[in-house]
Each structure stands twice: as structure tokens, then as C-alpha cells.
Design a protein around this nucleic acid. Structure first.
Length: 223
DNA sequence: GCGACAG
DNA sequence: ATCTTGTCGC
């Protein structure tokens, strides 16, 4: 599957508004996924490497991986990150031998200016259940969650609860969880906690991050 | 108008 | 994202 790249910011925003109508916010989504995928993209100027790491949902061991090289086709603009990463990620996901039960994205889903962040975009294009886990604040306001692992607070935007600020490790900076496609917020957070037995970030994002950087360093084939 | 702004 | 050393703490 090839993904078209918008020529302007206005066009990109129009695409988001268009695709948003295809979003499935009907939960609950996978509570005990057998295969959980993490996706990430690493950059080096014009070059980029996208990686998909599929982990066993129970043991969190890596069971399949795919990396693809490419070139940047859309400059980074807050709110339009998906146009930078989605083409390569769709390509990488398409090369998996078996579809994952859940895809964990680096960034946001519904918690987005137009309610259509990277996780929503990737979900609609692939049809797979997706969630977004951001490392820093992007949109919305929130109270700080209690210091215990598992505690959380609502991430609110324009009067809507668009995600949760979730503490994955005691006393450590929380992560920002929001729904992507075909998964509800409760299920999304349960999965994030299952993926963080030791570190702040989900094992899926840790592994995919490492894979994408390694692929870049290996001078992957360019498109 | 000015500042903020996932990765 | 990426540029970048040492350093504090478990």
C-alpha cells in the first residue's frame, strides 16, 4: 500500500479531517493481545528508517521485526507528524508475516488539535487497533497524577477528555496515552501498564526505537 | 499579535 | 527527531 503525501499544510489538514470520519472509536480493543507491535522512525537528515517490533504480549520477547529505509517527504509541523512517518510505517507493517493484535505508536492519537494524531492515522490506514503513547506534552491540560505506578489523570482539550496522563513507574515522569483506532482508553492504559514492567516507556517503543536507529546506522537501502 | 508546539 | 559530557542516584 502506498501513501500519498500532501503538497501543503492546508491539504494535509484537509486529509486529516477526511480520514477522521473513518475512525472507529468503538471499544474495547484487545485486552490480552498475543502480538503487540511497536513502531518508530529514526532520521539522519534526508534519510529515515522505520521499524516495527512485534513482541509476545505475555513474555514481551521480540518475535518478529521489520525495518525499511526511505527519504523524508514532509517536513515536521506540529499536528502533522503523521505525514512524515506514516508512509514508511505502513510499508513496514505490510511486510509482517502476521498482523499484530495491537500497535503502539510514538506520539498521540485522539489527543490532537483536530483529533487525528499519528496513532489514529496509522490505524485508519492499516485497519489495525492502535494507541498512542507520548513522552512529552503536546495538547491539553491536566493535573499531575499521584506518584504511584498506575495512577493517572484526565488529559483535557476543549472540554473533552482526549487521553490520560499515566504514571508507569513510581516517582517517574508520566506518559501521555491516547486512543488511536479500535481501542478504548481503559484498554489502552491497561496495555501500556502491561508493557512497562521495568521502564517508563513501553517495551514496544524501546525496542522499535533501537531497531530504527540500528537500521539507519547500517546504511539501509534508500527508496 | 505572541508564544507553544507529538517526533 | 537530532545535536551532546558528565553526573547524580538506585
Amino acid at each position: 500500500m502506498k501513501v500519498e503525501t500532501p503538497r501543503s499544510i492546508a491539504e494535509a489538514e484537509a486529509v486529516q479531517d477526511e480520514l477522521r470520519s473513518l475512525l472507529d472509536l468503538t471499544g474495547p480493543g484487545p485486552l490480552r493481545p498475543a502480538r503487540v507491535a511497536g513502531v518508530d522512525v529514526a532520521y539522519d537528515g534526508e534519510r529515515l528508517a522505520a521499524a516495527v517490533a512485534v513482541l509476545d504480549g505475555v513474555t514481551l520477547e521480540l518475535i518478529e521485526q521489520v525495518t525499511v529505509g526511505g527519504r523524508v517527504a514532509f517536513d515536521y509541523v506540529p499536528g502533522l507528524l503523521a505525514f512524515r512517518e506514516v508512509p514508511a510505517l505502513v510499508e513496514a507493517l505490510g511486510r509482517l508475516s502476521t498482523a499484530p493484535d495491537l500497535v503502539v505508536c510514538d506520539g498521540y492519537g485522539l489527543a490532537h488539535p483536530r483529533r487525528f494524531g499519528l496513532a489514529c492515522h496509522l490505524g485508519v490506514l492499516t485497519g489495525l487497533p492502535t494507541i498512542g503513547v507520548g513522552k512529552t506534552a503536546f495538547v491539553g491540560s491536566y493535573p499531575d497524577p499521584a506518584p504511584e505506578r498506575g495512577s493517572w489523570t484526565d488529559l483535557t482539550l476543549d472540554g473533552d477528555v482526549v487521553g490520560r496522563v499515566l504514571r508507569t513507574r513510581h516517582g517517574v515522569k508520566p506518559v501521555f496515552v491516547s486512543v488511536g483506532h479500535r481501542v478504548d482508553l481503559d484498554t489502552a492504559c491497561r496495555n501500556v501498564l502491561a508493557l512497562t514492567p521495568r521502564y517508563r516507556l513501553p517495551e514496544t517503543t524501546r525496542v522499535s526505537d533501537r531497531l530504527s536507529r540500528t537500521a539507519l546506522a547500517k546504511n539501509v537501502v534508500l527508496d
